[in-house]
Amino acid sequence: MKAFYGDLKLGILGGGQLGRMLIQQAINYNVNIKVLDPDREAPCRKLCDEFIQGSLSDYETVYNFGKKVDLLTIEIEKVNVDALEQLEKEGVIVYPQPRVIRLIQDKGLQKQFFKENNIPTAPFKVITSPEQLRESEFAYPYIQKLRKDGYDGKGVYKVTDETYLTNAFTAPSIIEQLIDFEKEIAVIVARNDKGDVSTFPVVEMEFNPQANLVEFLISPSTLPPAIQQEAERIAKQIADSLKIVGLLAVEMFLTKDGKILVNEVAPRPHNSGHQSIEGNVVSQFEQHLRAIFNQPLGNTACINNAIMVNLLGEQGYEGPAIYKGMEQVLNCPGVYIHLYGKALTKPFRKMGHVTIVDADRNKAIEKAKFVQNTLKVIA
């Protein structure tokens, strides 16, 4: 492979905020970046060396894009895997590997993988039709998830009793036991082609109950060391079982009796790792680059307490974004604002995030709540 800091051309499928933050890190390594995204106003468009507008799901578009780069990576899983597999056969390096992306695109295959590799997860059943859903003997309440195309809280439906079946998904899906969890946690793990594996410390997450999106993240976790070690062990087990090259975000439930169950995984930088830009020695974005370039993995230790707050578009507003409360928030020490370059806002759209760092954990949480209550995305 060419030197990543020289003539190597890195292609990114997806031009959203994850790609944007990946480019911001890649600039430090002098990496030549080419981006493909269907939105001509994508957040990456002004930061990359070359921007191509085109479909991520169209075979020819992805194939032709990939033929012009040396190494291809993703910032979204919803891409044409057939094209990636052909590119891989023709010598283009694709990380994460197409077989990994194909598996993770399908929550049914993902769950089967967990089962076959003894990775703890909630009891589940694969459903291919509404009839199978009605005939299922799964105890209420349970969660139904679309096998494909669900993301950011979409494609998830809670079935409380049989009256809810009327509005259930009709497409192929999985149903899984509703977990009465104590806390939602996440571990980001990286693996390079040499087989080196490294995890970021466990983070604790709080979700917006309406949008089902992470809106509050605390790092590092204060859970007992044994629980944190087990979460990191499971993340490493998944990465090694997949033999993935790149970054893998592992979302987990901590049950009230102290067990860890894996919820879902994502083979890319993830919302649960944004705080690492200011909060850790190496960020998740630099770690992903190190992994796909097959370089030594960085030190993931926490530098400080770091709280991440998602900036979501406020309900009732749609149009050109206005950031209300920006000056008050910027006046607060230890606050770092990341805007994603999206001109238009709408309810619950991810418009940016804010990281708050402080040596005093309670003060960091207090500042984060101030940010959450003060900085609003309106139109």
Rank of each mutant, 00 (worst) to 15 (best):
Q177P: 00
V282P: 06
L36D: 01
S283F: 02
P296Q: 06
K111L: 11
A26I: 04
I23V: 12
A211W: 07
P296V: 07
E137C: 08
N271W: 06
Q17Y: 05
L84G: 07
L146P: 05
G11S: 09
I277K: 03
E318N: 13
I218D: 02
L213D: 11
E41H: 08
E278G: 02
S55T: 13
V335I: 15
Y323N: 10
I218M: 00
K78D: 11
P38W: 07
L312A: 13
D39H: 14
I119Y: 06
L261H: 10
T222H: 11
T128D: 15
L375K: 13
C44F: 00
N117E: 12
F4Q: 07
G341Y: 13
G319H: 01
Q53F: 00
A291E: 06
F124H: 08
Y317T: 02
I74N: 00
E264A: 09
F51M: 08
K78I: 11
D49T: 10
P269M: 06
Q144Y: 00
F138E: 05
N271P: 12
C302K: 03
A211M: 14
L248H: 05
G155V: 05
Y336Q: 09
P43L: 11
L248R: 00
D240L: 14
I74T: 07
T199M: 06
L289N: 01
V282Y: 03
F370G: 04
D70Q: 14
R191Y: 00
V189A: 03
I185A: 05
T300I: 03
R290F: 05
A306E: 06
N167F: 12
P224T: 15
T222F: 07
I179L: 05
E88W: 04
N362K: 15
E50Y: 11
E176R: 10
L13G: 05
C44R: 05
Y142E: 07
I104Q: 01
D152C: 09
E50G: 02
N299K: 08
T128Y: 12
D240P: 00
L311M: 12
K111N: 15
G298A: 06
L344K: 15
V156I: 14
I356C: 09
I260D: 08
A306W: 02
C302A: 14
V354H: 11
